[in-house]
Design a protein around this nucleic acid. Structure first.
Length: 707
RNA sequence: GGAGUUGUAGCUCAGCUGGUUAGAGCGUUGCAUUGACAUUGCAAAGGUCACAGGUUCGAAUCCUGUCAGCUCCACCA
């Protein structure tokens, strides 16, 4: 054996051996208890980041349960990541001097498909490098035809159940990317913009967006505001840049009397609050900005001009006409931006598909309150409830091609919608017309990923759904508790009448060495695979688990990586010591259980370390079962190094005989089995060397027990 | 604006339902060693457990408030 452990010589070879022997697939023996995890599908098109490396917790659980004899499935997959991927692809087109508008829908889709196909193996090989014992024979992709079919069926069912509806709603629309975004995808930033005080007949109101005034359908004041009481309910005659006009004054509590003059213009088509007000007061909606961000015909002579420029022109003209009382140039406010391109979001009315969320949220709250689904650590339950109790309807339409096209057709004759579970309808379900046109939009990526646990298991092999659903554990980062976990619970219960998983285990974020969030814009991203290359997969895995409690963030720590590597080397050298000692001692049959070992042991010190190991087995088993991975890792580190090596081996090395050698060798093999889920490669390599009678692999050996 | 979360040794963090002298890794200091391992061993120094109150026989641990950091949510023209 080499003096120092070299991960580069063993990791690839071992992973290949595992995979070729089919160890990752669930055992086919009947009547075993099952354990299943669905891997949160990484973006097929992007390399892994540290968040993905944290899935090592899933590998630990999977390997642990597999050794315990469970029929164990850890199912891999990849996400098409709709907008995310199309965005990257369009950037690429841009470099080639092209844009998505140069291609028709089908070609664009296929081009992105090819692009993703080329990149997906990168992500998958990285999961392998981390040693993840995923069953590759069951790998799924969110755009696999049978997954698409499941997603379409769900949509159809929801349509029948009247849980989806189509309506014109204000959406967060990015006129640069040409798509709408969910509330979660809008980022807010403080900006300084002029606040214009505009004369509306006898009233003056403050606004940052005078160009939307053509879409005003009312002016609002607070119901208790004495200054304006006399105007409420009346129509004002106002002067505008487009001539004389009339506007109604309404009273609504949404108005802040302290802001500006206490008078607000109501533009239902271009402001979220105004839209809400318009629903309460039955106000018409007048759209004046179109999807390209330009003023439309309602803006008269300003039609065709980008809203931002139109604003300047309109203000100029208003000033000439004396319609502006004053301008506060230093007004600061927060505005919504597109999280991708950082341009201001334009609230626009657009017909979209929405999911009614409150009927879905109720059972999802229930199952956690009743303990049918447990969330670890418990502190995240609050976030979960907070989200579900205040949930709003979910806009699932996206104006991109890279995704699952919505299976809904609009009738050209009667304008009604026909929804199918994917197949093209022969005729309009309302008027039987044959003139149908499919919705151009695709589903929000999260609409398909929220169905992932059952969509995958229903479309893999034979009995998978029956055997493995609900899955045992859903492990992911706490940052997507609302985006993904909560939605999976809702959609899972809705579609299958069962919870999708029994336990939710949430890990924290891995930040940069200074504790700052890793992000592209900060430029502080560390590639986990480079560290795997440098320190070995085992060291990276161990460092991620060691010293961080579940659900807490951690700063990437090079000292910790080094100490993890040193620990692995320590184990290697324990093995070397055993090999050297073996030469001088005749071989005895290795004892696999503590019980048998106890019978053999003669020396008191040997008996003591056997008893300590017995206690260790008990604790490690409990630690993993309670998802206290850090305790388990710390305890194993402490025991292997400072008890087993520093004390026991130091003692035994001077008195070693056949009987003690047996204890030493057997105990070490037990220790390796306990360590295997955490650091699979080195334990496998050593196991093969230190167990003369070993036939197979440590990963299919049994978990140490005390009987 | 609302909520959550964190604040423990120089640094990174453990400390599980409150209970004897508060732990680890790295770093620091001293000593040892051709040893299975210098990716080593032995030992030492180092903490008013953010701050102020309170509950308790007893609090790093529970409660209240203050300060600081981080995150999420809402987003007022």
């Amino acid at each position: 054996m080499d003096k120092i452990y070299n991960h580069k010589k063993v990791e690839e070879k071992i992973y290949k051996m595992w995979e070729e022997n089919g160890y990752f697939a669930p055992s086919t023996e009947k009547d075993k208890k099952t354990f299943s995890i669905i891997l949160p599908p990484p973006n097929a098109n992007a390399p892994l980041h540290f968040g993905h490396a944290m899935y090592v917790l899933e590998d630990i659980l999977t390997r642990f349960k597999r050794m315990q004899g469970f029929k164990t499935l850890w199912l891999p997959g990849a996400d098409h990541a709709g907008f995310e991927t199309q965005f990257v692809f369009e950037k690429k087109l841009q470099k080639e001097g092209k844009s998505r508008f140069d291609y028709d829908r089908e070609n664009l889709y296929n081009m992105i498909g090819d692009f993703v196909k080329d990149n997906r193996p990168v992500m998958e090989s990285q999961l392998r490098k981390l040693g993840f014992s995923l069953d590759w024979s069951r790998t799924k992709f969110t755009l696999d035809p049978n997954i698409v079919s499941v997603v379409n069926k769900t949509f159809k069912k929801m349509h029948v159940d009247k849980l989806v509806y189509r309506t014109e709603r204000l959406v967060n629309y990015c006129t640069f990317d040409g798509t709408s975004f969910s509330d979660l995808e809008v980022v807010y930033e403080e900006r300084q913009n002029p606040l214009y005080y505009i004369k509306y007949g006898p009233l003056v109101l403050a606004t940052t967006r005078p160009e939307t005034k053509f879409g005003d359908t009312a002016v609002a004041v607070h119901p208790d505001d004495k200054r304006y009481k006399q105007y409420v309910g009346k129509d004002l005659d106002i002067e505008t840049v487009l001539g004389k006009s009339k506007i109604k004054v309404i009273a609504d509590k949404m108005v802040d009397r302290e802001f500006g003059t206490g008078v607000v213009k109501i533009t239902p088509a271009h402001d979220f609050n105004d839209f809400e007000v318009s629903l309460r007061h039955n106000l018409p909606m007048v759209q004046v900005i179109d999807l390209s961000g330009k003023m439309n015909e309602k803006a008269g002579k300003f039609a065709g001009i980008y809203a931002k420029q139109a604003r300047k022109l309109i203000v100029q003209e208003m000033e000439q006409k004396g319609l502006i009382e004053k301008i506060d140039e230093k007004y600061k406010h927060r505005i919504g931006l597109c999280y991708k391109c950082k341009n201001p979001i334009e609230p626009l009315p657009l017909e979209q598909w929405f999911v009614k969320m409150s009927p879905l949220a109720k059972p999802a709250i229930e199952v956690v309150k009743k303990g049918k689904i447990k969330i670890y650590p418990k502190k995240f339950e609050k976030l979960y409830f907070q989200f579900l109790e205040n949930i709003r309807d979910w806009n699932i339409s996206r104006q991109i091609v890279w995704g699952i096209r919505i299976p809904a057709w609009k009738c050209i004759d009667c304008a009604e919608w026909t929804v199918t579970s994917g197949e093209t309808p022969k005729e309009c379900s309302t008027c039987k017309s044959k003139k149908l046109q499919q919705d151009e939009d695709t589903f929000d990526t999260w609409f398909s990923s929220s169905q992932w646990p059952f969509a995958t298991l229903q479309t893999t092999k034979g009995e998978d759904y029956k055997e493995f659903y609900p899955t045992t554990v859903m492990e992911t980062g706490y940052d997507i508790l609302r985006w993904w976990v909560a939605r999976m619970v809702m959609m899972g219960i809705y579609s299958t009448s069962k919870i999708p998983f029994e336990n939710v285990v949430l890990h924290g974020l891995v930040n940069d060495p200074l504790g700052k969030k890793m992000s592209k814009s900060r430029g502080n991203i560390v590639n986990p695979l480079e560290l795997v290359d440098q320190y070995g997969a085992d060291a990276v895995r161990f460092a991620l688990v060691f010293g961080t409690a579940l659900g807490n963030d951690q700063a990437l720590s090079y000292p910790k990586l080094q100490s993890a590597r040193n620990f692995i080397n320590k184990l290697w050298n324990i093995a070397r010591f055993i090999e050297i000692s073996r030469i001088q001692n005749s071989e005895l049959k290795i004892q696999n259980s503590i019980k048998d070992l106890k019978k053999f042991a003669k020396n008191e010190k040997d008996k003591k370390i056997i008893a300590q190991t017995e206690e260790l087995i008990r604790k490690i088993t409990l630690d993993i079962e309670k998802y206290n991975f850090n305790y388990a890792a710390e305890r194993l580190y402490e025991f292997a190094w400072h008890e087993f090596a520093d004390k026991y081996i130091e003692d035994v090395k001077n008195r070693i005989d056949n009987n003690s050698f047996l204890a030493l060798n057997s105990l070490f093999l037990i220790l390796l089995r306990l360590l295997h889920p955490f650091i699979p490669f080195v334990t496998e390599e050593i196991y093969q060397r230190s167990n003369p009678s070993a036939g197979g692999s440590i990963m299919v050996e049994s978990w140490p027990k005390n009987e």
